Computed example of a mutant assay.
Amino acid sequence: MQKLTTHSKSSLFLMEMILSILILALTCTACVRIFAAAKTQRTKARELNHIQELTTSAGEVLEGWDGQISSFSRIFGEPGNSTDNLLHYYYDSNWNGCTESSARYIMNIQLNTSETEKTADISFYDAQQNCLYQLSTAFPDDSRKDVTSKQ
Results as ranks from 00 to 15, higher is better:
2 Q>F: 10
2 Q>R: 12
3 K>D: 13
3 K>E: 14
4 L>P: 06
8 S>N: 11
9 K>F: 13
10 S>D: 03
12 L>E: 12
12 L>A: 11
13 F>K: 15
16 E>N: 13
16 E>L: 14
18 I>F: 05
18 I>V: 12
18 I>E: 01
18 I>Y: 01
19 L>K: 02
19 L>S: 13
20 S>A: 15
20 S>F: 10
21 I>E: 00
22 L>K: 04
22 L>T: 14
24 L>M: 12
31 C>P: 00
31 C>K: 07
31 C>Y: 11
32 V>W: 05
32 V>D: 01
33 R>I: 08
36 A>F: 04
37 A>H: 06
38 A>N: 15
40 T>N: 10
40 T>E: 11
41 Q>P: 01
44 K>P: 00
45 A>T: 05
46 R>G: 02
47 E>G: 01
53 E>Y: 10
53 E>A: 15
54 L>T: 05
55 T>L: 00
56 T>R: 04
58 A>P: 09
58 A>Y: 08
62 L>K: 01
62 L>P: 01
62 L>T: 02
71 S>E: 13
71 S>V: 12
73 S>W: 02
75 I>S: 03
77 G>N: 04
80 G>D: 03
81 N>G: 02
82 S>P: 02
82 S>V: 05
82 S>I: 04
82 S>Y: 14
83 T>G: 05
88 H>G: 00
89 Y>S: 01
90 Y>G: 01
91 Y>H: 05
91 Y>E: 05
98 C>G: 03
99 T>I: 09
99 T>R: 07
100 E>K: 13
101 S>Y: 04
101 S>W: 02
101 S>K: 08
101 S>Q: 14
102 S>V: 06
105 Y>P: 03
106 I>E: 05
108 N>Y: 02
108 N>M: 04
109 I>A: 05
111 L>A: 01
112 N>C: 05
114 S>N: 11
115 E>L: 10
115 E>G: 12
115 E>V: 07
116 T>N: 08
116 T>G: 07
118 K>S: 02
118 K>N: 10
120 A>K: 02
123 S>W: 01
125 Y>R: 00
126 D>E: 02
131 C>K: 15
131 C>L: 15
133 Y>L: 03
135 L>Y: 03
135 L>Q: 12
137 T>I: 11
138 A>R: 06
141 D>W: 02
141 D>S: 09
141 D>K: 06
141 D>H: 09
142 D>H: 04
148 T>G: 01
148 T>D: 07
149 S>G: 04
150 K>H: 09
150 K>V: 13
151 Q>N: 14
